[in-house]
């Protein structure tokens, strides 16, 4: 594969992300990794569900009074929208429009950053009112589960930012197309996990 091969929209393959064997490997590998990550999240999720009502005798904070739905709703909207913007980026990649890819991926990063800031604010707020990591089994489980998702967001942000910086001046080719596609798949996966977090942690937490 010649990395410097220049394309026109007409010679650009219909599936640029899987035009090379490396690209195919990368995508299958990422999917397989996501399957594995699903199980990792499932085990922490299951632990959270088992521990969500338990703490030491006289525990102050119960899920019911703790969570604030408006904040969770805004975070959900930010992440869902960022999922759509990364779909737009992939749409432009198929059309060999690099500036489109860069713009939409950039917007994805901004939305992700917004999500992350809100999450940090939320954690800060909880710690501030006395709901710390070591407070109870429930608090440990909550911070571990949501924090693990937050860590995935950070990794996704670093990954996408890195891709944008690395490829800012060289445009699309068959070497970096699978990389962009893989990063966008990973970003969607973060959204998939969040769907369960807002349902199981926040909504079911408020229901009690």
């Amino acid at each position: 594969m010649d990395i410097n091969q220049k394309f026109t929209p007409q010679t650009w393959p219909k599936h640029p992300e899987q035009a090379t064997l490396e690209g195919k490997n990368k995508l299958v590998g990422l999917w397989i990794f996501l399957a594995s990550d699903t199980v990792l999240f499932a085990s922490v999720f299951a632990t959270y569900i088992a521990l969500k009502d338990s703490g030491p005798a006289g525990m102050e904070f119960a899920a019911r009074d703790l969570y604030e739905l408006p904040l969770a709703f805004i975070m959900t909207m930010l992440l869902l929208t960022s999922s759509l913007t990364s779909v737009y980026a992939m749409y432009h990649m198929k059309n060999y429009n690099y500036s489109g890819v860069r713009t939409w991926m950039g917007i994805t990063v901004l939305l992700g950053l917004g999500f992350l800031c809100l999450e940090i604010y939320e954690f800060y707020h909880y710690v501030h009112i006395g709901f710390g990591y070591t407070q109870s089994a429930f608090s440990s489980a909550f911070f571990t589960l949501v924090g693990m998702h937050g860590l995935h967001v950070v990794i996704g942000l670093v990954w996408i930012t890195g891709l944008i910086i690395r490829n800012s001046s060289r445009g699309l080719n068959l070497y970096n197309a699978p990389k962009f596609f893989a990063a966008s798949l990973y970003w969607h996966f973060i959204d998939v996990v969040w769907v369960f977090i807002f349902t199981v942690v926040y909504l079911m937490g408020v229901l009690g």
Binding site: P56, Y133, S136, A137, S140, T144
Partner: peptide, 18 residues
């Protein structure tokens, strides 16, 4: 790891763990 090294309470029954 977090239970033993950073004070979390997943398995510590006195703190609600299991």
């Amino acid at each position: 790891l977090v239970d033993r090294m950073f004070g979390a309470n997943f398995f510590d029954h006195t703190m609600g763990g299991n």
